[in-house]
Each structure stands twice: as C-alpha cells, then as structure tokens.
C-alpha cells in the first residue's frame, strides 16, 4: 500500500462529522469592517505602507516618469530594470532620452533568468513594475507576475519601484478576490507586498532589507 492509500484510508475510517460551510454572512467580518470611502481608502493605504518605511510619491499619469528620473538621479542607482514590454516602458524611455542630466542605464528583463542570473543577483540596483491591484485594509500591493514582469523583479534588486493607480485600490483582499473571481484562474505566483523586506528576529528589533528589497517606492498616480 502506498503512503497515500494508508493515510486516506485512515482518514476515511475516522468518524465523519459534517460541518456546514460558513455563510456569506460569516465571511462579512473579513469585509464589512474594512470598507472605506475614497479619502479613507487612499489615506489608509498610504499610512500603513509609510508606517513600514515605504516611500510614497504622489504623481499623475503625466508626471510620474519625471519623478522616477529624479529618484534615479538622487538615489544613485547604477541601473534600472524595466519589464520586457509594459505600458510603463514608453514613458520611461522617452523621459530618459529627453533628460539633460545623466540617468542610470535602463535594462529590460527580456531573457530567461538562467541567461543573466549573476547580473540580476549582484549588479542590478533597482527595478520598476506595475501592479495588478492594491489593498487599503492592509496597505498591500498585489503583484501578478507575467512573462513581461517576472517574479524576481520585485524581489532580488535592492530597490523595487511600483506604479499604483488610485483606481486600482480595493478595500480588502476578500472583496478584491471575489470581484475579480480569482478562483477561476490563479497565476503561477501571486504576491501581496506590504512594505520593504524586514525582520525582527534579532531581539525583536525591526531591521529592513533582510533578504528582499531594502527599499519599496510607490509612485501613486492620483489621476487614474
């Protein structure tokens, strides 16, 4: 008998006790207390992220590439990693081209990790991605990695910049999941990010930049 057969037969031999599934009313406790008006929604999202050392910049759909360029110059990144082909890329590339001051070179995640693993791990300072959605209740950004925006982009470089549109803000995870019917098709890897990497494993002192990005920068687009 295989382990599977042994385990399942023991479980099936156990007394059965049917328990009803929780009702929609039961689940409401994970939703109702976490619904906000539009002002609250934005302020809560920002406050929670700021409380864990996330840098948030209010921008518009016109100004964000300039803000990014200023940050790039100011932070001294050696380079900036872009998705392979994202709606973000055009605006960034144009801003870079038009810039009078020197900006870090742009790279694209355009080949499989095996081809450039060392460069990603040791020589990439910052990466920018979009996001799938954001959540006010917990101050979270929903990343839905894709062939264009692979999962290591938001993880390996020391700085992760993410563009969040105000309209992408949902109230809470359960509402978002239900509205978008996530159970119909989950991606390879879905990640909620709620700040830069941190740990409190040494005497309960919080330190940032444990293994993932030391800095999380949100470009928050207030006009879309």
């Amino acid at each position: 008998m295989t382990a599977k057969t042994r385990i399942l037969s023991r479980l099936r031999a156990a007394p059965s006790q049917q328990k009803a599934a929780p009702s929609a009313e039961d689940y409401a406790v994970a939703q109702q207390p976490w619904r906000f008006d539009s002002t609250e929604r934005t302020s809560r999202f920002k406050d929670l992220l700021t409380a864990v050392q996330t840098e948030i910049h209010d921008c518009t759909s016109e100004t964000w590439p300039q803000t990014l360029a200023e940050l790039a110059a100011q932070k001294g990144w050696r380079n900036l990693l872009l998705p392979e082909n994202s709606p973000l890329n055009n605006a960034i590339e144009q801003t870079w081209q038009n810039s009078v001051s020197a900006l870090p070179p742009l790279q694209h995640y355009d080949q499989a990790i095996e081809a450039w693993r060392e460069a990603l791990f040791f020589d990439t300072d910052a990466a920018i991605t979009g996001c799938h959605a954001a959540i006010a209740a917990t101050g979270s950004i929903v990343l839905w990695p894709s062939p264009s925006e692979p999962r290591l982009m938001s993880l390996v470089p020391p700085t992760h910049i993410v563009v969040v549109k105000q309209s992408q803000l949902a109230d809470n995870l359960l509402d978002l999941m239900q509205q978008q019917q996530w159970q119909q098709g989950m991606p390879t890897n879905l990640v909620l990010v709620s700040g830069p990497s941190k740990t409190s494993d040494i005497q309960r002192v919080t330190a940032y930049g444990a293994h993932g990005p030391k800095a999380l920068i949100v470009l928050f687009l207030t006009d879309c």
Binding site: L48, V52, E84, Y109, Q111, A112, I113, A137, T138, G139, S140, P145, S146, P147, P150, R151, L152, M186, P187, T188, N189, L190, V191, L192, V193, S194, G195, P196, S197, K198, S200, G212
Partner: peptide
C-alpha cells in the same frame, strides 16, 4: 502571531514556471 495587519509578503504559488515565463 506578530501583531501585524499582514506580513510583508503573502506568497501564493499555484504552479511551476509556465512556458514563456522567464523565472520561477
């Protein structure tokens, strides 16, 4: 557990790397 509204990362894995994906 730690008194956090959520942890920094919630990582949901549903498959290995699919064709066309560049990492994982």
């Amino acid at each position: 557990a730690t008194g956090q509204p959520i942890t920094t990362y919630v990582n949901m894995i549903s498959s290995p790397r699919k064709a066309g994906e560049k990492d994982g």
